[in-house]
Write a protein that binds this DNA or RNA. Structure first.
Length: 433
DNA sequence: TCTGGGGTCCTAGGACCC
DNA sequence: TCTGGGGTCCTAGGACCC
């Protein structure tokens, strides 16, 4: 963090418009004017859509099967989600932003905060320059919001997206208090970062329906009614900095791998494959962060949408010593599964969560030998991760994950050639088509 | 037939201890 | 046996985020 003692803090939020759809369009420039949706795993729900789609009455998180027919009739093109592709574009996006300030926080796959405190520039013009550069270098369209706190920058970004007169860049810091208040009076309170549907309903009952009302609410009263988180939000709306730019993501406290099945699963062997897969997947992601797990949690469940009564057992077990070894974690997970499994259930989802994670540094070898094979295991895991990094995820894995994997998800509309694209040469962060 | 997959933080309440 | 307060730890649940 830079020192902010002599300047009023300034944050910007750069956010890619319809990230997943924009990535798909990058591969298919011919779809520039075609409405696109991207579907969740299993092609279940709509999780991203281009602007035109809202006008068609298709909503976010709507099950695809409910709207597919109508959408196709309207010429909508659908894609299965392709996270490797999106992660690749996300990295290019963040790298481009680093040209403008070293103080960049990657907040999510399609959003970065920038600290612009103390910059002697016309902030709005700078925002436009950022927007244009990202478009040129990555083909991704973005909006930029600028404010004295992260919460305000978020809100400014929303305004930049929604109100066309701003043309994609909205700078609250250059607006007068009166101007801002007039703007805030016209924005629904649930557009504020940290105010979801529930809070919005409760706030509405107290007569707080727009952002201006929330900004003017008494922090103490908000704290008593809603807790410290929303109190902080109110203060941030008033320009008080409570959230700072984060250096890097804090280490995870838990790592979860879970997924719905492509079709219902009933047999133990199929569940064993799925749990093995999730154990291996979670362990690999945990190793990437150089963490060890102290506990393993496994769950299986049927579908809330099926007629059957809900069945969703879950169990957690503490490990005798922290480990990052896929083999040990898988063993434990399979043991838990065996204890929970009941025949005659149509399982819809299963998952593994690794918990109580601790840094890999300084792990003690326990007295009873559980961890005594650590050097061997470490070499094996390093090899495993190396192969999978080089040749793609899942190239090397435990046999218990199965070969056919009949339980895996559907991705019937995946964009082709994504690996070739991911390997595209980069010159000075610039994308070379 | 088909209904996402990750995470975090806070709070309240119970168990237990002194 | 009854009474009370303070502290910690754990868990479940609810809210939020993308």
């Amino acid at each position: 963090m830079r020192s902010t003692t002599s300047f009023k803090p300034v944050f910007a939020l750069a956010d890619v418009n319809s990230m997943y759809c924009s990535c798909e369009r990058a591969l298919r420039p011919d779809l520039r004017d075609t409405p696109i949706v991207v579907l969740s795993n299993n092609d279940g729900c709509v999780i991203a859509q281009t602007r035109e789609i809202e006008a068609l009455g298709i909503e976010m998180a709507q099950p695809w099967f409910e709207v597919e027919e109508q959408a196709r009739a309207l010429g909508v093109v659908a894609f299965s989600s392709n996270y490797e592709l999106y992660a690749n574009f996300s990295n290019r996006f963040a790298e481009t932003l680093r040209q403008f300030t070293p103080f960049v926080e990657v907040y999510s796959i399609d959003e970065c905060f920038l600290d612009l405190t103390g910059m002697r520039v016309d902030l709005e013009a700078y925002g436009r320059q950022i927007k244009e550069t990202v478009l040129q270098w990555t083909t991704l369209p973005i909006c930029v919001g600028i404010g004295h706190t992260k919460t305000l920058a978020k809100l400014a970004n929303k305004v930049a997206k929604k109100q066309e007169r701003f043309e994609g860049v909205c700078d609250f810091t250059s607006m007068s208090e009166t101007e801002l208040d007039r703007l805030f009076a016209g924005i629904a309170v649930d557009k504020v970062w940290g105010v979801g549907r529930r809070y919005a309903e409760r706030l509405a009952r107290l007569g707080v329906e727009n952002v201006l009302r929330l900004k003017r609410a008494s922090p103490k009263r908000v704290r008593d009614e809603f807790g410290v988180v929303l109190e902080r939000t109110v203060k941030e709306l008033n320009g008080e900095v409570w959230l700072d730019l984060q250096d890097g993501p804090p280490p995870s406290k838990q790592v979860m791998s879970s997924r719905s099945f492509g079709a219902r699963v009933t047999t133990l062997p199929a569940l064993q494959e799925a749990i093995s897969f999730h154990a291996g997947n979670a362990a690999a992601r945990m190793r990437k962060q150089q963490l060890y797990a102290n506990a393993v949690h496994v769950f299986i469940q049927n579908s809330p949408f099926d007629q059957a009564p809900p069945f969703g057992p879950s169990m957690t077990v503490a490990l005798p010593a922290p480990t990052d070894c896929t083999i040990k974690i898988t063993e434990v997970a399979l043991w838990l599964l065996k204890r929970m499994y009941k025949a005659g259930i149509y399982y819809q989802k299963a998952g593994v969560m690794l918990m109580e994670l601790v840094p890999a540094e300084g792990q003690q070898v326990d007295l009873f030998g559980y961890a005594s094979s650590i050097p061997k295991s470490k070499a094996l895991m390093t090899t495993l991760d190396g192969i999978n990094k080089k040749y793609g995820r899942g190239t090397a894995r435990l046999a218990s994950e199965g070969i056919k994997q009949s339980w895996t998800m559907r991705r019937e509309m995946m964009s082709p050639n994504y690996t070739a694209w991911a390997g595209m040469p980069v010159v000075g962060s610039k994308l070379v088509p």
